[in-house]
Design a protein around this nucleic acid. Structure first.
Lengths: 190, 190
DNA sequence: ATGACCATGTAATCCGTTACATGATTCG
DNA sequence: CGAATCATGTAACGGATTACATGGTCAT
């Protein structure tokens, strides 16, 4: 029950479904994702329950745009969600499951291959985040007033992404070391 | 399409739905979660497609247990999944969204409160993981042969949980510092 | 006898993905 | 002329949560 709230948060300014998808691709990648085919019906549902209102708007290129904006009720729903305290759900990490169950195969070389691939992926995501995060962090360090409150919150969230990705990449390195160590021990007298 | 695979992985030995829930609560908390009401129909579905077979078994306390075990096909499906390479999905972190959108409120004290609550939760989860992870890590460091291959894989996965939770707790601390810094800057000449 | 734990499930609803369907404009 | 981008949606299916429904055993 959270995509609705994420969309509410993004609708600090009126936007169409198509615009919002760009927000997911550019801004929100590191904490949420959604497809157009989910965004459109969700917006319709939010309008039905009175959280949003919409109007049609001509576009230069392409068909008419349906632009949504929050109603007072929608804003209340957003603020209620923010007041709920941190929603720390049951996050799901399929790749950790894969790693655990790979134990059954008993092939440490294969496990090492798996972790190398994982490290690559994580490094890719990290690289994409580090640039923009670094820029904002520099600005903030030079002058803590350089960023507005909204940008500042955005910086905090990007730092989270960077930190936890770095920790995961570090974990990959250490895993590879531990695997080598185990292989050597097994070769000696396992 | 992954709960099925997680259940397959857990069924290295025959187990009932009820047993499997315990595996989620004890062993798999840090990477997956599932309710009984999802587990039961999923097992039934897996039996229908031939990944599992089941038999009834008397229980000392309570009603008859339905115990599932993997078929050869189920084992193949599991190994195929493991061969797919790391499934790095679009993880969703609702609390990061909450933090970002809290920018709109423009109340840094409230943001600080939010982060303190979040830190508490993360520390709780971390504390629960660190004990068992520490025990295994010690055993491994004394003798890399002390752990069997399956336990070793389990250690790797717990280390991941510990690492990324520590990184997140560290991020909470730094956020609080940055918020103080920003508040002071604003007081000076914002 | 009350509550915790054992044990299984169904039904309604909602959330999310994949695939399908359409059509205009702009840039190379 | 073809590909990318703009722009909106529906349909079918599958994954997940919440609530409902039942009943036995064991310890205090």
């Amino acid at each position: 029950m959270s995509l609705r709230h994420v969309l509410l948060g993004m609708l600090i300014e009126p936007a169409s479904g198509y615009d919002l998808r760009k927000s997911f691709e550019e801004g929100a990648r590191h904490f949420w994702s959604a497809r157009l085919s989910q965004i459109y019906p969700t917006l319709q549902g939010m309008e039905r329950v009175g959280w949003l209102r919409s109007r049609e708007e001509a576009s230069e290129k392409g068909p008419v745009r349906r632009v949504y904006e929050r109603t007072a009720e929608g804003t209340r729903a957003l603020y209620d969600w923010l007041s709920d305290g941190p929603v720390v759900g049951q996050e799901r990490f399929a790749y950790i499951g894969q790693l655990v169950f790979m134990g059954e195969l008993g092939d440490l070389d294969r496990t090492a291959e798996f972790i190398k691939k994982l490290r690559e992926r994580l490094e890719g995501t990290l690289a994409a985040l580090e640039g923009p995060a670094h820029l904002m962090r520099d600005a903030f360090e030079k002058d803590a007033n350089a960023l507005g409150v909204i940008e500042f919150h955005y910086l905090l969230s990007m730092e989270m992404g960077v930190r936890s990705l770095r920790a995961k990449v570090g974990w990959c390195e250490d895993c590879l070391d531990m695997i080598r160590e185990k292989q050597e021990a097994e070769a000696r007298h396992g």
